[in-house]
Amino acid sequence: MQDTLIDQALSVQAGWTEKLDQLIAQYKSIPGALLPLLHAIQDELTYIPESAYPKIAQALSLSVAEVHGVVSFYHHFKTHKPGRHVLQICRAESCQAMGSEALEAHAKQCLSIDYHETSQDQAVTLEPVYCLGNCALSPAVMMDEEIFGRVSKADLEALIQDAIKTEAHA
């Protein structure tokens, strides 16, 4: 079991096992290390592979179930590799007041997917978000770490087309 997990870990990305060890060493002794470590892993890989749980658990004296419990509690953490880009559409009240529902429908239609899914070409993963702090310029969306306000359907479509054409952000 342990061995197959390690094999999977190796297949995540070249040099990943060493990188994981390095991140664990970097974070394990800071107070409340788990969230910062999970963030660091996701920053590196864009998601948190389950194969990393045993090592994390061991380093922080937790059970694998506890690590799993924390990862699954937080909406931000992804357990599967997302598409090259992540598009977040704000669903909260201020954006609703400015037509976010139509944007959501349009994005789903353009990409032929629902929330938490990735387009077939692996270009875009669609996620809901509850406020981006851009409520004075609702409706708002975020593509990777770039934020957009007063977004029209045409703007959204252009963003999606652009994402389909471009590589992942470094």
Partner: peptide
């Protein structure tokens, strides 16, 4: 600075503290 992870309830102060300690909120 510590990054949260997208759970609204972690704005509640005790849930926030749990989260800062590395736990579920």
């Amino acid at each position: 600075v510590r990054r949260a992870a997208g759970a609204y309830v972690c704005g509640e102060e005790t849930s926030l503290l749990e989260s800062l300690e590395g736990k579920r909120g």
